[in-house]
Design a protein around this nucleic acid. Structure first.
Lengths: 147, 147
DNA sequence: CAGTATCCTTGCGGATACTG
DNA sequence: CAGTATCCGCAAGGATACTG
């Protein structure tokens, strides 16, 4: 239903975008932002990506593949993703505990839709590339960036 | 170069996703998350969308089209987007001040790539739709959701 | 009109220690 | 192993008042 990225003229985008907007109610806007907020949270992308690549994994295995996550944040992230319907949790009731996670169909679909955006961001920011100093010298709050 | 959502088999996704991952350095992962974080911030989507639909707009006009933004947050958001290279700022030096904003080419491209994801989220969450109570009854932090 | 300056609350994310 | 409990710093976001 939606034409492919890059093949739209500006006018088509605008009218299409307008149509989408008109069709949205307020809480849908909230939903949209919610999901993107969650997707943008510190570890979600990594988890989704890892599960996408490796399939069903145990808690610790996910952690092992993601540099720098703490247990708490991993658990938190997984629970959030489960809440959002993107990840499914399997508790094989064993001792010592064994819990596995995998993407739901919805999670996989999200990953698919994410990849183009995602790749584009990396490509693009390589082009754009303000140096870190240059970037930081334009603080969002203070007025110095106009000087 | 990247096939659009829905046309990939699971295996293709996995291998592609893997390839993307392998090609990424650590700071690129940071960049990706940065952009998504910014895009996921409270007002960014609305601004990008509004500018996409209406074209060049004045500060106050953007605000008028977005329910609930405060001046501060709008300014902050615009400045952040400008920093990220998504929005261009025109200061016609007048009294009283007149400043206009529009999407850069990069901003427009982002919008294009956003729309499919975005539409999908809304469709999908309409299907999924845990009631708000049900959703909230599964707090991310506490253990109650297992009961 | 388009901002800036302050103050405040909330929640994210990290660190560390503990448990069934 | 897969969590939970607790404490802590920081930045996001909101409210309000002020300015060239």
């Amino acid at each position: 239903m939606i034409p492919e990225g890059g093949t739209l003229t500006r006018d088509e985008i605008l009218s299409y975008s307008q149509a989408v907007c008109d069709g949205l109610r307020e809480d849908e806007d909230g939903v949209r932002r919610d999901v993107l907020t969650h997707a943008g949270s510190r570890w979600s992308l990594g988890v989704i990506h890892t599960l996408g690549v490796y399939g069903r994994l145990r808690h610790a295995d996910i952690g092992r593949r993601m540099h720098g996550v703490t247990q708490r944040m991993l658990t938190r992230t997984l629970k959030q993703l489960e809440r959002d319907g993107l990840v499914r949790r399997y508790d094989l009731v064993e001792m010592p505990p064994r819990v596995e996670y995998e993407l739901t169909e919805m999670g996989t679909e999200l990953l698919i839709r994410m990849i183009p955006l995602w790749t584009w961001v990396v490509e693009k920011s390589a082009e754009f590339r303000l140096s870190r100093e240059e970037y930081d010298s334009r603080p969002v709050e203070k007025n110095s960036w106009q000087a």
